[in-house]
Every structure is written in structure tokens, then in C-alpha cells.
Design a protein around this nucleic acid. Structure first.
Lengths: 133, 133
DNA sequence: TTTTAAATTTGTAACGATTACAATTCAATA
DNA sequence: TATTGAATTGTAATCGTTACAAATTTAAAA
């Protein structure tokens, strides 16, 4: 696992330091789209010298290398996702949990966008999840 | 126009104060999805005593009454929209402009969401607009 | 009209997530 | 081992937003 991650980072032009490996590993294992705070609080148990700035720096680097995507559902709550394939996010307004869901297609009237270059597509729903209904 | 807005606010259970009318009117006239800062800087010329807190309060109220929606594309840049119908937003990463586009449908694999209650649907794209290409 | 109470607006201070920046540590190579 | 650049760290600054209390406005009652 850790070797895989190290190789994966390298193949994306990222030098695999301990912190970078652990942070990416965390994101792969915890598919609940954690915030920087969550990542920090969990990983600092492992790496006591860890700094939040490192996590910010690392996510910034991962974004530039396009191996993570950012999830902005709430203004004050930035989350990160290691799954870069197009998929939707559902946030429960009761418990706050964020779920993934699969998208087959988005049908757009080809009015404006046909002349634009689309680089990223983001889709999220809000509501109440099964457990909270 | 102003009468229409006043009536519209009333019909949504909002007492139409001067500030509320002006803020809603601004949002209807400026369909570029302004931030609180933009609204404040433009309206303070009209209402010199205007406070940013009032704009925050007012948007919060409008959201509760569901006559405006919030647009969160960037973490640090919350925008507001008087159009509450489902539509997509396109943000140009070069000039920062936010455009609307029409959506016919979003095709979702009915796996997870069938048991969830969906209250809001948000969709945004990023890329380069016609002018910046 | 005056009084009173409630709602609205306002200004200031506090908050919290993120970023800037300089210092320190680490890793690779000569 | 010494040197150099990259990565990490901690602290301080920034900025959008919120909390809160005071001031103002509005509406209703006396």
C-alpha cells in the first residue's frame, strides 16, 4: 500500500515525503471527504511534529498535480477528495455527512457553453440522508 | 418595479424595508451573482448609512424564505442569486466572471439517492469563457 | 399625538479558516 | 562531511463572516 502510494506520487511528479504519503494515504482510506482540520487532528497522532501549514501546502500541491479535487459545499468548510473522476456529492443537512453518488450524464442545453472550454465539473445535492429521515 | 419588489417580499413573509427592497432589487438587476462586498460597495452610494451586517442579515433572511440561493464555487467567495430555478453556473478561471447556463436534466444512477430526500441541487463548471479563450 | 414595544439596522469586536513568511529541518549529492 | 535546495514547521497576518449590544425605525396602543 505505502509503496503503491509512493510510486503513485512519483509518477505524478511529487516527491514522496513521509508527510505527503501519509496525507494521501489518509485521503484514500477515508472516503468521507475530510477537512484540513480532520486530517490534521487524525494524523498528528502519527506524526507529532505535523503542522497544519504542511497539510495546506500538500493539498495545494496535490491539486496542482490534479491527484485530488476540492469540494466546496459550504463556504466555511473546504473538503478534499482523492477520487478525481466525475461524481456527485450529497451533503446531509442534519448529520453533516457527505456521500458520493454516481452520475450518468448531465444534459445541458448547448446554448452558452458550446463556445466555452470546460475544465472542471462539480455537482452537489443537499438534503436528508437515509439515517436522518 | 419597486412596488413589485415590495409586494413580492410581502408575499414571501418579508417586511419590505428600504434596505431589503434595495438589496433584492440589486440582485434582480445585477445577474452576475455579486458577493456581499460588491453589493455593499454599490449600494452604500445610495444608502450611506448601510452596514455590511445588514446585507449579511438580509441574505440570511432571503435564504430562509427561499427567495435567493447561495453560490459557493470558491471557498472564499460567496455569491448570491435571485434566480431560484435549477440552473448551472460557469466560472471563468481567467476573468472570474460567472455565467448561467440551462440544464435539461441530470442523469443519476439511482443507487444511493433513491432513499435520500434531496432539497437542493447545485451544479457548477469551471474553465475558460469565450472572451478569454 | 404621545407612548410603548417590537423589529430592523448599525458598528464594533470576536472568530476561524487560510495564507504569508521566515526559520528550521531534512535529503541528496559532491 | 559539507553544501545546497527542497520540504516542513510555527507564528503572525489577513479577510470574510458572525455575535452581540446599542441605536434607530416602525407600528400599534393609549
Amino acid at each position: 500500500m505505502k509503496n503503491n502510494i509512493s510510486e503513485y506520487l512519483k509518477s505524478n511528479g511529487i516527491k514522496p515525503s513521509l508527510q505527503r504519503i501519509k496525507i494521501y494515504e489518509y485521503l484514500v482510506k477515508n472516503k468521507n471527504h475530510p477537512t484540513v482540520d480532520k486530517v490534521y487532528n487524525d494524523l498528528v497522532k502519527d506524526i507529532p511534529t505535523l503542522s497544519k501549514t504542511t497539510i495546506y501546502n500538500t493539498f495545494k500541491l496535490f491539486m496542482e498535480k490534479k491527484i485530488v479535487t476540492i469540494i466546496t459545499i459550504e463556504e466555511n468548510e473546504t473538503r478534499y477528495d482523492a477520487d478525481t473522476n466525475l461524481h456527485g456529492h450529497f451533503k446531509c443537512e442534519v448529520c453533516g455527512e457527505v456521500y458520493d453518488f454516481a452520475i450518468d450524464d448531465i444534459l445541458i442545453r448547448k446554448d452558452i457553453l458550446k463556445e466555452f472550454e470546460v475544465d472542471e465539473r462539480h455537482l452537489y445535492f443537499k438534503g436528508k440522508c437515509k439515517n436522518c429521515l
